[in-house]
Computed example of a mutant assay.
Amino acid sequence: MPGSGLVIFDCDGVLVDSEPISIRCTAAALNRFGYPIDEDGVFDRFLGASTASMVATVEASLGRPLAPEALDDLRREILAAFDRDLTAIPGVAEAAARLERPFCVASSSIPERIRHSLRLTGLLPLFEPAIFSATMVVHGKPAPDLFLLAAKRMGADPARCVVVEDSIHGVRAGQAAGMAVLGFTGGGHIAGDPARRERHAWRLKQAGAALVFDRMEELPGLVREVSG
């Protein structure tokens, strides 16, 4: 129904527990490219950012372009690691099934990676075809473009949308789109370190998250709460 509410999920770190894998692979690759960074640095600088945004930052710092084949190698390494290790965020399928409004995915990842991740974890049937990628817009997160595109395609009023995000970039994008944002800290890249979880929860709130949570079973009630 035009103007209806909508829940917009980020994918990595919200639907699938992919960020520990991606962060590990990305840190190793960037060091090979000559850009010194550890896993904490990747978390702080690039969590939630599109590949294009990360590459632009790295290339500006290095003063030279990254070889396209090097980026292709990184994508292959991440996907191979997903095949071995990727799991769904605990309880996310059950939580999505209990939502009282439509839902979709809007991720900084490329469409092939989003679908691959959802297929590996058994979540694809829940979301197909309501899958939106930063490759579909000019400006990725923290710009609002991707979330606004998802709302438009799903026939939803942005003011009645709720975004579920684990990253500062994503929270800022949801805020810029005029949507309520729930910050999620239950992914393995955050929940495994209590000090990081506390710090990241504070940063999500500072970026504009209305509420922060770490267990997916809480999601339906929180959506109702922030939706008024």
Rank of each mutant, 00 (worst) to 15 (best):
1 M>F: 12
3 G>I: 06
5 G>D: 13
6 L>G: 06
7 V>T: 10
11 C>I: 07
13 G>D: 07
17 D>V: 04
17 D>S: 06
19 E>M: 10
21 I>P: 06
21 I>T: 11
25 C>T: 12
29 A>P: 05
30 L>P: 00
38 D>F: 03
43 F>V: 08
43 F>C: 09
44 D>V: 12
50 S>Y: 02
61 S>N: 13
64 R>I: 06
65 P>D: 12
70 A>E: 15
70 A>I: 10
72 D>A: 14
75 R>I: 15
77 E>H: 08
78 I>G: 08
80 A>E: 15
81 A>N: 12
83 D>Y: 07
85 D>L: 12
85 D>M: 09
86 L>Y: 04
87 T>G: 05
88 A>W: 05
88 A>P: 00
89 I>W: 07
91 G>Y: 06
93 A>E: 13
103 F>G: 09
104 C>H: 00
108 S>Q: 09
110 I>E: 15
110 I>C: 13
123 L>H: 09
123 L>M: 11
124 L>D: 12
126 L>S: 09
127 F>G: 10
128 E>R: 04
128 E>A: 12
131 I>L: 15
131 I>R: 04
142 P>Q: 09
144 P>L: 03
149 L>R: 11
149 L>Q: 11
152 K>W: 14
153 R>T: 14
153 R>I: 10
154 M>G: 01
155 G>P: 00
160 R>H: 10
166 D>K: 02
166 D>A: 01
167 S>G: 01
169 H>K: 13
172 R>C: 11
173 A>T: 02
174 G>P: 04
174 G>C: 00
178 G>I: 07
179 M>S: 05
184 F>H: 04
185 T>G: 01
186 G>E: 10
186 G>M: 08
191 A>D: 14
192 G>V: 04
195 A>M: 11
195 A>T: 12
198 E>S: 14
204 L>E: 04
210 A>T: 00
211 L>N: 05
215 R>T: 12
215 R>Y: 02
218 E>K: 10
221 G>C: 01
223 V>S: 01
226 V>Y: 02
228 G>C: 13
